[in-house]
Design a protein around this nucleic acid. Structure first.
Length: 253
DNA sequence: TGCAGTGTTGCTTC
DNA sequence: CGAAGCAACACTGC
């Protein structure tokens, strides 16, 4: 930790990009910072002060009273007086420092699949060719394709009308095409709505995202499916995760 | 009151 | 090898 501090102190940020669910910050010198927010982590940009061991926001607005301030685990202070804070109730987030020349061989990065929004229908379909198993866990597997977690996997399969337990090798061309279109649509919507703040996630400003307001399947157990002639959204367990779907229009293939 | 469940993924086990 | 189980953690809500 002390070593990490010394390595990044007074270094200018050269660039910030995203790869999969990593935030990649290149700094002056030969190092790059990788941040993974995991389940409950989120970076917030603002000003805080420590009062009785608690970080208290000095900026009015959504940051001010949010209980997420309570779970700030790290704070970096910039020379403009602003701070970047990692709030992470469950402490799964990770920050690592990597030598620039080691970035491409980094195991966390090396095995990642493609970015779904950079795929066309041909390359998307091709990915599924060699794949077996249940569609939902595969969609969520970052070595298969990145960026799709439990929420958006449920939303994509709901939109595509595909049952989460469907076997990939049984899917027809038209099914893959529907999954492709739904993936593009849902991920673009997710970006437009700036994420899902049903739980802990916040924007860097402290504001909530809006996707929780348009969720159609995830955490909608017992509600009526909003598609025409929809059933009741049902929850099952796949692997160790819950899956939500409409039993009426998402049939197993 | 306990226990299942929670925007993830990497390691272990079979 | 692939698939599945489970751990890391702290808290909520049924």
């Amino acid at each position: 930790m002390a070593k990490f501090k010394k390595e990044i102190k007074n270094k200018k940020i050269v660039s910030v990009v995203r790869r999969a669910k990593f935030i990649v910050i290149n700094i002056e010198g030969d190092k790059t910072i990788f941040i993974h927010q995991k389940i409950s982590g989120h970076l917030m940009y603002g000003k805080w002060e420590l009062k009785n061991g608690q970080w208290v926001s000095k900026i009015s607005g959504p940051l001010k009273e949010d209980r997420q301030n309570q779970y700030i685990r790290y704070i970096w202070t910039f020379n403009n007086g602003h701070q970047l804070a990692m709030s992470d109730i469950r402490r799964f987030s990770r920050i690592i420092l990597v030598r620039d020349r080691d970035v491409s061989s980094l195991k966390e990065i090396r095995d990642l699949g493609p970015e779904p929004l950079k795929l066309d229908i041909e390359s998307f379909s091709k990915l599924f060719k060699s794949k077996k198993g249940k569609i939902k866990p595969v969609l969520m597997d970052p070595t298969f394709m990145v960026g799709i977690g439990n929420i958006y996997a449920d939303e994509i399969l709901w939109d595509a009308g595909i049952h989460p337990l469907s076997r990939i090798d049984k899917l027809k061309k038209v099914d893959i095409s529907r999954i492709f279109k739904a993936t593009q649509k849902i991920l673009k919507l997710a970006i437009k709505y700036k994420g899902d703040s049903m739980d802990d996630y916040r924007l860097p400003s402290g504001k909530k995202g809006g996707y929780q307001n348009i969720q159609r399947a995830y955490q909608q157990t017992g509600k009526k499916c909003t598609k025409q002639d929809g059933g009741i959204i049902t929850r099952i367990k796949i692997g160790q995760r819950s899956a939500h779907f409409c039993p009426k229009h998402q049939k197993i293939t």
